[in-house]
């Protein structure tokens, strides 16, 4: 029956594209998570009234974050072509999409990390200082654990945005479901391929949302 509705779908290609999308998404989510936390912590700690209060560092970081967050992703990929080529030697393939994906998503996530950290009760940080905790201990044992549900729900949103970004990256040659939908589906007028690729992307998004929501529910003890 499926054959009847999707006569032009090459399942092997579809699976391959799905794998590529998952590969690009998961690698970029992991690196975005780490970079976003670092940037978010820097934004938070250097902001007014915090442990490393520093107007210059805060302003510079904030400007960089805002600039990269504001560039439309499709333009960012194009802008980053020379950088990608210098870094990886190619602009084709899954790996070539990673720099653009990470640079596009990390500032976005950094802002969410900053917001999550701001939600932490100042009194709790003060209590940790009063106990003699170092800044590193405060980051590790207070800031991250106390904001974890917000960090995870922010990551869920970012991961879903990244699935969308991979589709866009696919159009310019990165592979994945976006590439398949565009080349095999749109350009060859096989709308069933486009539809199937869309369905697979939706399933991926739903699974990410489900995992994120479950994790937040488990972690939140408030």
């Amino acid at each position: 029956m499926i054959e009847q509705w999707f006569p032009n779908v090459d399942w092997e290609k579809m699976w391959e594209a799905t794998y590529e999308t998952l590969y690009m998404t998961s690698i970029s989510v992991v690196i975005t998570f780490v970079l976003g936390i670092l940037l978010g912590l820097l934004l938070f700690l250097t902001s007014k009234g915090q442990l490393w209060q520093n107007k210059a560092v805060y302003s510079i970081t904030a400007v960089i974050v805002n600039v990269f967050r504001s560039i439309p992703f499709i333009i960012l990929i194009v802008l980053l072509i020379p950088f990608t080529k210098a870094l990886l030697g190619t602009i084709i393939g899954e790996n070539a999409a990673l720099p653009a994906l990470i640079i596009g998503a990390a500032p976005f996530y950094a802002r969410m990390v900053e917001i999550a950290l701001r939600e932490i009760d100042r009194g709790v940080i003060e209590a940790a200082r009063a106990m003699g905790a170092s800044t590193w201990t405060i980051i590790r044992k207070v800031l991250i654990p106390e904001s974890l549900p917000a960090l995870i729900s922010g990551l869920t949103v970012t991961a879903i945005a990244l699935v969308g970004y991979t589709a866009m990256a696919g159009v310019i040659g990165a592979g994945g479901l976006g590439n398949l939908a565009f080349l095999d589906g749109f350009q060859r007028s096989r709308s069933d391929v486009t539809l199937m690729a869309t369905i697979v992307i939706l399933v991926i998004v739903f699974i990410i949302q489900f995992i994120g929501d479950t994790a937040v529910r488990k972690l939140d003890k408030r």
Binding site: V124, E126, A127, A130, P145, E146
Partner: peptide, 23 residues
């Protein structure tokens, strides 16, 4: 580190308790 060491010998309690909800 000297101040942190000294703080370990001075306990403090607060109006709003300031407990870590995650623990």
């Amino acid at each position: 580190s000297e101040l942190r060491k000294a703080r370990q010998e001075i306990g403090m309690i607060f109006q709003h308790f300031n407990l870590l909800w995650s623990r």
